[in-house]
Nucleic acid binder design. Sequence first.
DNA 1: TCGAAAGCCATTTTT
DNA 2: TGGCTTTCGA
Length: 866
Amino acid sequence: MTLPPIFSDSSSDDLLAGLNPEQARAVEYRGPALLIVAGAGSGKTRVLTHRIASLIRSREAWPSQILAITFTNKAAAEMRERVEQLLGQAAEGMWISTFHSACVRILRREAERFGYVKSFTIYDSADSRALLKRIIKDLDLDHLGLTPAGTASRISKLKNELTDVDAFARSASANDPREQAFLEVFRRYSKELARAHAFDFDDLIGQVVFLFRAFPEVAALYQRRFRHILVDEYQDTNHAQYALIRELTRPVEPEVVAAATFEYAPREVAEDGSIPGAGLTVVGDSDQSIYAFRGADIRNITEFERDYPGAEVVMLEQNYRSTQNILSAANAVISNNFDRKAKNLWTGLGEGEKIVGFTGYSGHDEARFIADEIEDLHRDGVGYKDMAVFYRTNAQTRALEEIFIREAIPYRVLGGTKFYERAEIKDAIAYLITVANPFDEYALRRILNSPKRGIGPMTEAQLAAFAEGQEISFRDAMRRAAELGYGPKVRGSILTLSGILDHATSMALTAEGQKPTAVSDILNYILTETGYLDILRASKDPQDEARAENVDELLAVTREFSRNNPESGLVDFLTEVSLVAAADDLDDTSGTVSLMTLHTAKGLEYRAVFITGVEEGLLPHQMSADEAGGPSEERRLFYVGITRAREKLFLSLAMTRAQYGEISVALPSRFLQEIPPELISWKQSPGMVTSREGTQPRALNAQRGGPGGGHGGYSRRSNEPSSSSVGFRGGSSAAVSEPASGNMTSSLQKWREAKRAKAAAQRSGGESAFPNTILGSVQDNGDLELAAGDRVEHSDYGPGVVSAVTGVGTKRIAHVDFEEVGPKKILIKIAPITKVSTDSDGTDSDGTDSDGIGSGSTEASADAES
DNA sequence: TCGAAAGCCATTTTT
DNA sequence: TGGCTTTCGA
């Protein structure tokens, strides 16, 4: 690689070139602790990489004395690359990785100190949950409201606080049966993990902290090694991670220095014989803290100056990413969080285009809008890879994907149902784990009968009992299956599998100094010998074909891995696989639109960003409503989403959304109203979609008839001038339980009156007829029963007679002949209608089943998803 | 032991 | 809506 001359200059000046004064200070400051408060898009990665390069170039640290912690592996790789670019050489020996990867590295080295094999298994959350499920079932404790997910999250929280079982047992109240039941599960869980030589995600951090505390001489190895520690996204660290950093930056006591034998040349030793603690740099932005649910403690960053007295603080407030309009929206939104330190991002990039808003009738409608805009942008020269679509929940991808496929828009979903979560992939991985870590009985049991080889639950239980009785491992029990008096078929199955595993294990063994066997060879051997692939391929289940392809894909992944890391073997592969993050499989060269959750979006940026589902109940999410700090965190999440956009930002929502096969109705998010209206140009505003009045506001996403009936805390703002000037707050409530019996003439008059009033209001309102506020709301008719002959009144179309009803459940569609506008089809559940009278003389409908396609008269609100 | 059918249930974000 | 578990029959 040829570098411009400036990069080979040994002076540090070029590292400051192009930086603003604050950034430069953050690069140059030398002292024990530095906090960089980096607003969104303020160039923190640049500052961090330049700082590392500066430390190395000035000889204040060797690359191997640098530890940089990032949030994802991708960010780590990128940072490494950028530092190497700055230095013009490979900066070998730098540890740039995530918390989890760094801890695994330490644990693998030190595992044997506390009785674990080096090849311990890493349990992801799904594995943990599966284990807990089993334990709860075994202990027969599910009646006390103990769910796998619930206990998993509670255990995770405890571990994040560095509370292990014993510590918890001390504080648990002895006379609360539920507490005791949980303790029992927790204890068993810890025991099973240890037995399987496995760590869960939280252990990876916590165990390192315990290790350091229990073995000061081990801690000293790392305290001595790392002279500078840099932590990115510090606002999302939890207590365990905080403690880990504290341990790593602790000075090494003189007596430990004296007693230790270090394998590297010692770092400088102070006069008193100690080794000073490492310098710490943390970077973060409390406005972007979005992982409190996972135990992140915002105080780690807000109280940094207290934790590290004398720490220098640098504020980066100039944004280099977004246009002013986008930034103003972001600032306006986040300023609604009361408990934050004021901070104002500014940009020199100019005003830019307005934010585009869109309100769809349904999730599909919204998706179609997005697809159209993406195509427009693409025609205007914006590459697909420069666009991203964000959503709050993974379930929202479905509608988007359907449209994207139909419109042939290349896209890629990050995270979500991950490749490694598929059953066939988990099976294959379980085989590899069984080979790597013979203690992991759960992996072994998973593949015992997969592919089907006639070893059912009965046989499995017998083997387990035999193993326990003989005090041997499950694996040994399999080897001695002949002693169990099975029929020839079962015995043969067990022994064959056992033999395959033994051989695979011998393949994986590598002599000292020898290159490890390629993972692909091991996997290929297993898949061939067990017939796993052949059986999938021969299956008549059409899904098995896809499964076989997935397994092939995994084989390709292993080959790729061996090619890229010829020095790495089976265990390294398994480690990498367990620690992939959603954002890691982002490929910048892919040329596809990226779809991801708002959480995954953190740290990324795109020229054009679509934030979808900006609705009450979704963003902010329902679940966050009664969590302490929940609404604030949701707002930060929205803020993170907004600030990912460089040039174009689209905010969209849907008035109805298919959820669990039901259609539910939503209100626009409160966050929308926090954005100054002049920043948004609505292609279709909520007001345009719900341009009707006189219906009961009702947030369908809120629990119907639920406690409080508070509609998810949404405070309606329909008393604002724009909507009250409509002047029609009709008494025609949507309370369908009391069908208004009325005479037609007067209701028609009333309707015309209302229509005039509304039109007048819109004329006088001009542009602001569709401001960024919410007019009315979508009506929910619940289970309104309609039949042919019924008279209804529609707030836009006026009175009409039902000619037929088709569809079922929430998707029932009424075919109505309106007096004013003729025949229309409307979705009963959400149409702004009221039943006026029931068909009394049994008028039968004609053309009962004329389908809506092609008739062109299907009202938009009937455009519901199926 | 296994497959199909039927009910049931949950649905936030993730290293 | 669909993924998952349970149930039932072979």
